[in-house]
């Protein structure tokens, strides 16, 4: 890891605070699932926080983000309100999607977060299309938004990976693809079922400039994301393969029997949050300040947990809203 006194400590303290907030949110979400308060599946991103913070920390509010089923961290890092997100996980009134989406469809269009997706790889095409729409409108107005799409390593074996990357390259769209490789496609090791030299080579074969990065190294992720987002904004689509590791189960209910305790323990030594903390300490940030950020994150997420638990259920009529505008109507002229 690049360390030392030259570190922009304000920048990385902000990333650190984001990572602590994600971790605390995920811990609260797992607790909610285990206590039966979050009734659906919870896919936590513990261990992957540096990707969310480093990538989304380089976006502005109007930029657009598409995420996958493990999307809480990305959504928080894009600026969504943690309280509205937690209420969504609980399926309560005031949830960011009104209780209709839950964890896997978390979205906050107000901060440019156009949705997590329950279908692996589906967000790649939607992201390419959002970038296509932005690109089309550029001829009429100064729209310099960039689109970022974060998907997992499992997505590289789906057709939309090929189609969407080709699409972005052919039309030179303002989009950055980020393969957040946590090592597992659901509960199977991705490497066991993925042929060839990997996601970067696949992206390069389609003409995209691509790079690999240690996804647990916030400094490296931040630097690469900053460069690639600038290029993508200028109409040069880019691809990042960020290697990280999922420290918890596939879902909150998954005890991860398919991996040895020793392996998980070894991976905890590479915890991106701890690495960022050590880096900041080394750069002279007081440990009290670091602990303060961690404690504040934990308190914040405990509070949103309690608020979500206390919130009402959505009114049942909402189940029938937001389906279609079109209604059967007699043709007046007929």
């Amino acid at each position: 890891m690049t360390a030392g006194r030259n570190l922009d400590t304000d920048r990385f303290f902000a990333h650190y605070a984001t990572m602590q907030r994600i971790r605390a949110f995920e811990r609260a979400a797992i607790r909610a699932a285990r206590e039966g308060l979050a009734t659906g599946a919870i896919h936590a991103s513990i261990g992957q926080e540096a990707v969310a913070a480093g990538v989304c920390g380089n976006l502005v509010r109007s930029d657009l983000l598409l995420s996958n089923h493990r999307g809480h961290g990305h959504t928080l890092a894009k600026g969504a309100d943690a309280g509205a997100m937690m209420r969504e996980l609980f399926g309560r009134e005031g949830g960011v999607c009104g209780g209709k989406g839950g964890s896997m469809h978390i979205a906050d269009f107000g901060v440019g977060m156009l949705g997590a997706n329950g279908v692996v790889g589906a967000n790649i095409l939607i992201a390419a299309g959002a970038a296509h729409g932005v690109h089309m409108r550029r001829s009429r107005s100064a729209d310099d938004r960039v689109v970022v799409c974060i998907f997992g390593d499992g997505a590289v074996n789906r057709g939309p990976f090929l189609e969407g990357l080709n699409w972005a390259a052919v039309y030179r769209l303002p989009v950055l693809f980020v393969c957040e490789d946590n090592g597992f496609a659901a509960t199977t090791r991705t490497e066991a079922l993925t042929a060839g030299p990997g996601p970067k080579a696949r992206a390069e074969s389609l003409g995209l400039v691509a790079a690999e990065v240690d996804g647990n190294d916030i400094v490296a992720v931040d630097a690469l994301a900053r460069d690639f987002i600038a290029a993508a904004r200028a109409g040069e689509p880019r691809f990042i393969h960020a290697k990280t590791w999922r420290l918890e189960g596939h879902t909150a209910a998954d005890k991860g029997a398919y991996r040895e305790a020793a392996e998980v323990e070894a991976r905890w030594a590479d915890d991106p949050v701890a690495r960022c903390e050590a880096l900041l300490e080394q750069a002279g940030v007081e440990s009290r300040r670091l602990a303060g950020a961690r404690d504040a994150a934990v308190r914040e997420m405990e509070a949103v947990f309690d608020e979500a638990r206390a919130a009402d259920w959505p009114a049942v009529e909402r189940a029938f809203e937001d389906v279609l505008d079109t209604t059967a109507a007699r043709n007046a002229a007929d």
Binding site: L66, L125, I126, A128, G129, A131, V147, N166, W167
Partner: peptide, 19 residues
């Protein structure tokens, strides 16, 4: 291209941003 999934999927994204 002959990429039906992309034609449809990209249109979803393009529609979401107002086209």
């Amino acid at each position: 291209p002959i990429s039906e999934a992309s034609i449809m999927g990209a249109s979803v994204g393009a529609a979401m941003v107002g086209t």
